[in-house]
Structures are given as structure tokens and as C-alpha cells.
Design a binder for these strands. Structure first.
Lengths: 192, 192
DNA sequence: GTCTATAAGATGATAGAC
DNA sequence: GTCTATCATCTTATAGAC
């Protein structure tokens, strides 16, 4: 049984992802990542020949893991209100852990730096989120716990825009409480 | 009457601001700006010795001009609904003109790249916006055109988070219509 | 698979001529 | 005020030893 690449490779992706979420793609280098891990730049190039390869790998994994997380929420929640609350909590954790942003909102800000395939994957992530929220809202409408005046699709997009903006503003303010109060009040507004 | 620095200086700031709103602070260089204007890098260093000086100048001017714009909206609008609509239109124009983001949401994404004075100015911009929206909502509550269930302050923060996120997602989707429909539906939700 | 060494180019910044 | 020339440093990336 051969020793797996995975240890180093995952460590590179973990560190790269962390730094991108914190600082942005254009603010980090192979040297930053290598130094943090305690390896050399050339080792990163072995796994990810170019920086675009690296960010694509990180992005693809992130999207996949995020979908798993949403799946988990579906399984452990008893109703749509709880699902939505856990959704907001998930975005809160990113912020609470070293003041990071969602990988895709950071990359969406730096959108022009990326080729079309990567842009499509970023948009895919947003669509994943919207689709999931839409289903949750549909469920909430059926059970009578959510506002049925505007379409579920549009409601899900508003929530998605809100959560990305809330994360950005809360980090900028340096106060996690800022995020909590905003979410609390938005949830009020989603009720019928 | 001496020839004014202002021509070149303003041109540098205009170009720098444009490029930051499009690509981000860490994605642009003195060379990019110089090339666009048709001057040399050294000329930019004459007006703005360091890159931080440049971004601080751009940011300060942006915040001032934005406050003027909000003042203008106050003067030409007949009620709070119109004010809010024009507010969203202003953010829409940024997006419509070469798919740029708000300077401060871009800089908020790159927050860790900046020293404390610049971070404070970014937050000042967000506070300016929140204060203005809060007043508009107060006015709307008095005239009965806006939802009075949650505090005006919190409602203004939700709107601020929303508009920043909406801009980000709409640009990423490449479809301005995405922004319009979101705004339209959010406005519905703000009514009593 | 990880390293050293190195390339080729870009970056922010400065000195000094005009 | 704008330029040329130059700097030290950092960047992504590759070749080749171990």
C-alpha cells in the first residue's frame, strides 16, 4: 500500500484556502503557503504546477464540501426555520474562525483575475446555495412558517446576497455581534 | 495664475479608482495606471509617493463624493421610497459602468492589506451609508410607507449588506437583470 | 516526493537630469 | 512636473540533484 500524496497535497490546499479567504488570491504567494507549512515552493509546484491549478483545486473541493454541509443540515434539522438558521451559522463560523470570508465571495471580488472555467465554478457555488435555499423556503411556505408573497427563487437570491454582504460588513466592523443581530432581524422579516 | 497639479493628479486617481473597483488593490500596479494615462510610473510617485498614499487619496475622495450623492438624492426625491430607489440605482450604475464594484466593498474584501487608518475610513463609508438609510427609513415609517416591525438601524444594516452582496453576485453572474429583480423584490419586503 | 538553484519578469520605490 | 535609469525585492515557474 503506497504512501499517499494526500497528506502534503491537502495541507497545501488547506493553507492556500485559508490565506485566500483571509487576504485574497492576489495577495498571497507560493512562498507564503510554503513558509506556513514548512516546505519549499518547488514542492507546491509539484502538486499544482501553476497558481491557477491551485486555486481551481481549492475551489472545486470547497464547493463539494459545502454541498455536503448543506446535505448535513438537511439531515439534522427538523424544519425549514432550523435549516435556515444553521445555514447562517455556517457562514458565521467562517467569520468567527480568524475573520475569514467565504472563499467564493472573495474570489467573486477578484473575478477579473480568473479565466472562464474558474468563473463558472464560482457561479456554480452561488447557484448551489440558491437552489438549496429555494427548496428550504418552499418547504417553509408549505408549513406556513415563511412569507409566500415573493417567489422562493427571488427570496433565496436576496438571502444569498444578504449573507455575503453581511459577512463582508461584519468582518470590516471587527464585531461578530454585528453579524448576529443582522441575521436575527432578517429572519424576522422572512416570516409571514 | 499657476497651472494646477489637479489635472494629472485627478486623472491618476480616476484611473486608479477605476482599476481597483474592477480588479482590486492587490491586482493593480503603478505601471497599469501609468500606461492607461500615457505617463510614466515616476510621475505617479511624484503625487503619491507610496501605493498606500494613492489608495488613501482615492478612498477619501470617494467617501466625500458619495456623501454628496446621498445629499443630492435627498434634495431631488419627494419621499422615502424614491430615495431608497435612487440609492439602489446609484449602486446599479457602478455595476452597469464596466462591471465595477463599490470601491469600499472591494477594499473590505482586501481589508487585511490595509493599515488601521484606511480600515477606519472604509468603515466610515459603511457607517455613512447606514446613517443615511436609517434616516430614510425613519421618514418612511412616519409616513406609513415602511415596515416598522424592526428597528430602523437594523433595517438599514440589512439593506447595506444586501446591496453590497447583490452587486457582488450580479457582477459574478454577468447579468445586470439579476440585480434589478433582487432590488425590486427587496423593496416589496420593506413595505408594511 | 522534496529539495537547491536559478531563471525571467514584475513590483514598489528612489535619484537625478531636464 | 515629467522624464530616464536604476534598485532591491518579490513573483511565478522550471531544471535537475538526491
Amino acid at each position: 500500500m503506497k504512501k499517499n500524496n494526500n497528506d502534503t497535497m491537502q495541507l497545501i490546499m488547506d493553507t492556500g484556502q485559508f490565506l485566500i479567504q483571509e487576504r485574497g488570491y492576489n495577495a498571497i504567494s507560493y512562498a507564503d503557503i510554503a513558509e506556513r507549512i514548512g516546505i519549499k515552493k518547488a514542492s507546491i509546484h509539484y502538486y499544482f504546477p501553476s497558481k491557477q491549478d491551485l486555486v481551481q483545486g481549492i475551489l472545486h473541493r470547497y464547493r463539494k464540501e459545502f454541498l455536503n454541509e448543506l446535505d448535513q443540515i438537511d439531515q439534522i434539522s427538523i424544519n425549514s426555520e432550523e435549516k435556515l438558521f444553521r445555514f447562517f451559522q455556517h457562514y458565521r463560523e467562517t467569520l468567527a474562525n480568524d475573520a475569514k470570508l467565504c472563499l467564493c465571495s472573495m474570489m467573486a471580488a477578484e473575478l477579473v483575475s480568473f479565466p472562464i472555467e474558474i468563473r463558472n465554478e464560482i457561479n456554480g457555488f452561488f447557484r448551489d446555495n440558491e437552489n438549496w435555499i429555494e427548496k428550504v423556503i418552499e418547504q417553509g411556505k408549505e408549513s406556513g412558517s415563511m412569507d409566500y408573497q415573493i417567489s422562493s427563487r427571488e427570496q433565496s437570491r436576496i438571502i444569498m446576497a444578504f449573507v455575503q454582504g453581511a459577512q463582508l460588513l461584519a468582518r470590516s466592523s471587527g464585531d461578530l455581534h454585528y453579524y448576529d443581530v443582522m441575521v436575527e432581524n432578517l429572519i424576522k422579516k422572512l416570516k409571514p
